[in-house]
Design a protein around this nucleic acid. Structure first.
Lengths: 190, 190
DNA sequence: CGATTCTTTGAAAACAGTCAATCTGTGTGG
DNA sequence: CCACACAGATTGACTGTTTTCAAAGAATCG
């Protein structure tokens, strides 16, 4: 099942020997809708590549409200990197929104592999750069734009996510109530 | 003047040879209050280490409002990493809020050095992890907390920044108006 | 078809933003 | 040393928007 993962790696120019080393340590995992990959308090030991499916990472406040920090779909990497990097208990949950096929790698294995395989390291560095750019843009969006603008930006930037997740989760991701997102759609279209 | 920078590097266990290599390529730079290190449209060619002083990076919206993306004080690294990594024109400004002493390194030089000096690479990786953790927490804070809570969190997490920058910039960083931040202080103390 | 999940909607209340004026403290130059 | 300018902080009245809560309407799935 993890052929998609291999293909993804091959695009980056890894040779067969390197591929074999990677295949030795990866852990394929299936998740059904509503299953959790990570729960609050656990340590995120794995970085997770999404072969198929869709997940969300969210935080649960004391008052019981969920706040979505990220979505992940095919070809995304996902983990609670704060927990992953520091080895501390996570403050978040990661939940499958659809049935998922995932590839897990422990931080130890991935770090070792990255030391020996420059192309893999590049891949990882690129992903991290992408993430940090996305974070910065998201921060700017939240502090500077109106709800309308944020909605429009999300729709434009993440159409593939938008079409797969319930609207109230988009609202949660954008930091607005579902009432507000409904109102926007009314005037803004769709 | 860049002795502080050398000391900072030494703490990470670099040897003298490595230090010499680094010293060859760094560019000391002084900025006076209100001077810009980077302006919108320019490419962020440098990563910048703050020896002394305080800076802000902000975005200027079409309507003329400034939105602060980050502050930097002593021992922080700073750049518009979106521009820095991709070599694209920046959407932001970086401005000195006080007279500053900085150490600049071009991306090319830093990348080369990091390839040869594992300790330096670790240093850089650590900084990036810190940044991404901070971003994630900031996002969570904005989408899940009330202005009061965000204010309190900033006060607690960044007291050294808080005491050095004008209040309306804290407001801008937190994504609220100065009216709101004033109101909070009235009830919340100070 | 029944049950669950998702989306919209209404009315009331809470809240934050705008604008403009005032107040404060700092520092500069005459 | 004083006067003035300047940047920063607070305040008030008003406006507009968002949240809350709850309930009803759609849509989807087994």
């Amino acid at each position: 099942m993890h052929q998609a993962f291999i293909d993804y790696l091959k695009k980056t120019g890894l040779n067969d020997l390197e591929l074999q080393r990677i295949e030795k340590v990866i852990i394929p995992r299936k998740l059904r809708r509503r299953q959790y990959l990570l729960q609050e308090g656990e340590i995120a030991r794995y970085n997770c590549f999404v072969v198929s499916g869709c997940l969300r990472m969210f935080h649960l406040s004391k008052s019981g409200t969920e706040h979505i920090l990220r979505f992940a779909i095919e070809n995304y990497w996902l983990s609670d990197y704060e927990s992953y990097h520091a080895g501390k208990p996570s403050k978040c949950f990661i939940e499958a929104l659809e049935d998922c096929e995932l590839i897990l790698i422990t931080k130890e294995d991935l770090d070792l592999l990255c030391n020996d395989i420059p192309n893999l390291r590049m891949l990882k560095d690129n992903w991290e750069v992408q993430c940090s750019d996305a974070s910065q843009n998201r921060i700017l969006s939240i502090i500077s734009e109106t709800p309308e603008e944020r909605y429009a930006r999300f729709l434009q930037t993440n159409p593939h996510v938008f079409n797969r997740v319930p609207l109230h989760m988009v609202a949660s991701y954008l930091g607005m109530s579902r009432k507000t997102i409904s109102r926007i759609r009314q005037s803004y279209g769709r």
